[in-house]
């Protein structure tokens, strides 16, 4: 037992070093005074100054944020509906096709989704004249489509775990469908809806490939801008951008972790008290 656990601990250390050494290296070099991104030229914060005064980057970040907010919200509404439909309506016409449609985007290579969506948008413009050009609208439509299925997966699995008998009992006792939905189903899936929205938001904010195909001139999201800069080589202000991103995300994840931890402890305590009260 002893020897294997040493091996596992070693692998854990190696794995986490593998995860974090590149990120830490990038963070250190964001304070590099030299323009040559790989040679240390003393401590400096000038890349942060140049980043924060770069209108192009700020505009791209703002655009990405707008698209992510809009598409995550739409994707959550549609994806939650699909998750409820799959988990609670066992029989409707075309259910097999529907369940195929919500899993296929998960395994579809992004390049193919990208060119397929672009061809659709171009042909739609030819046939019905909408969307007239590619840009904000087409990117948002594409993001909604491929992020809603992630929401569906989360909501579906949460609702499959929950017992439908509670909802059926409420129906039998005379509740209306809308009341059942509002008072039972939605509270059950609300954590799934929140994590679905967060996932859809991140996916949209991070997407390069599908955005690259569906965007048009003048609509440059942050990942597209970074991609075009990185293609030309290493630029130090990207290090600064990466450091800021990691700090924001790290803080967010840490706060979420503390909240979840507290909730778990409270649940444990309540369960213990309920158990003792029943003794």
């Amino acid at each position: 037992m002893r020897r294997r656990s040493t091996f596992l601990v070693t692998m854990l250390c190696f794995g986490f070093a593998f995860f974090y050494v590149p990120i830490l290296s990038m963070m250190v070099y964001s304070f590099n005074g030299s323009r040559l991104a790989t040679v240390w030229g003393g401590f400096s914060t000038k890349w942060y100054v140049s980043l924060l005064s770069n209108r192009q980057i700020l505009n791209a970040a703002l655009l990405s944020l707008k698209i992510a907010l809009l598409s995550a919200t739409m994707a959550t509404i549609l994806g939650t509906m699909a998750g409820i439909a799959l988990a609670r309506f066992k029989r409707f016409r075309g259910r097999t096709l529907f369940s195929g449609l919500v899993t296929a985007p998960l395994v579809m290579p992004e390049v193919i989704t990208g060119i397929a969506s672009l061809m659709l948008f171009i042909l739609m413009a030819e046939w019905i004249g909408w969307p007239a050009s590619r840009g904000f609208t087409t990117v948002t439509l594409a993001h909604i489509t491929f992020s809603m299925v992630f929401v569906t997966t989360i909501v579906h699995s949460r609702l499959s775990e929950a017992d439908a008998a509670v909802e059926e009992a409420a129906m039998d006792l005379g509740s209306r469908p809308w009341q059942v939905m509002k008072d039972i189903t939605l509270p059950i899936i609300s954590p799934a809806i929140v994590s679905g929205w967060l996932l859809a938001f991140t996916i949209s904010l991070d997407d390069v490939v599908i955005t690259n195909f569906t965007t048009g001139p003048g609509t440059t999201t942050l990942p597209i801008l970074i991609w075009s800069k990185v293609k030309l080589g290493v630029t130090p202000d990207i290090n600064a951008l990466a450091t800021i991103t990691v700090c924001i995300v790290g803080t967010g994840v840490a706060i979420a972790g503390v909240i979840l931890n507290r909730a778990e402890k409270r649940r444990d305590r309540d369960a213990r008290m309920a158990y003792q009260a029943n003794q």
Partner: peptide, 16 residues
């Protein structure tokens, strides 16, 4: 955590 940070920036870290 790395999954929540940008995919492009993680590729970029290795370019460096």
């Amino acid at each position: 955590l790395p999954f929540w940070t940008s995919f492009l920036l993680r590729v970029y870290a290795w370019i460096g």
